[in-house]
Write a protein that binds this DNA or RNA. Structure first.
Lengths: 68, 68
DNA sequence: ACCCATAGTGCAATATATTGCATATTTAAC
DNA sequence: GTTAAATATGCAATATATTGCACTATGGGT
C-alpha cells in the first residue's frame, strides 16, 4: 500500500460519492491544496490528515498483518 | 482507528516478535525517539514513517470502507 | 469559439513531524 | 539493593507536511 495507492483510493471513493475536492476540503478540514497533493500521490500525509479525509468518504485506516 | 491504537498495535506486534525499540529503529530507519513517541500515542506519524515500521513487523496499512 | 466550474501547479510562509543529545525512569536479573 | 538493559522525556535543531495566494490547465455545456 504505497502513497500513490492511498491517494488513488481516496480519489476513487470521492468520485463514487460525487464529492468534489472543494467539498471534501470543507467537510474534512483539510485544505484543498493538500487534498490535491494527496490524491496525486505527491504528498506524504500524516495519519491525522488521512483519517480526516477517510472519515468523510466513509473509510478508515487499518494496520493489518501481512500474510506473505 | 486512532493514533493511540495504531501505536499500540505496532508495539504489540513488536513485542510478539521480540524486537526491541532500538532494533526496530535500525531496521526501519526511523529514529528511536520517533518510535517511542508513536508507540506512546504522542505522535502523528506520516504514512511513510508508519509504513517503515509496519513493514519491519510484518504489517501493512490499509484503507478500507467502513460498513457502519 | 466562449464561458464556467473543477482540478492542478509554483512559490513562499507557517505548522508540525522527526531527530539527536543528555538525562531520567522503568524493568529484569543477579 | 545494585547493576545493566530497555524504555521514556525535555529541549532545541532540522526536515518536512500543510497552507494560502495567484495562476494555469482541463473539461463540459451552450
Amino acid at each position: 500500500m504505497g502513497i500513490e495507492e492511498i491517494g488513488e483510493q481516496i480519489k476513487q471513493r470521492r468520485d463514487i460519492l460525487h464529492i468534489q475536492q472543494k467539498d471534501l476540503a470543507e467537510l474534512s478540514g483539510v485544505s484543498l491544496r493538500t487534498i490535491i497533493q494527496i490524491e496525486s500521490g505527491l504528498a506524504n500525509p500524516s495519519i491525522n490528515t488521512l483519517q480526516k479525509l477517510a472519515q468523510v468518504v466513509g473509510m478508515q485506516i487499518q494496520l493489518v498483518i501481512k500474510n506473505k
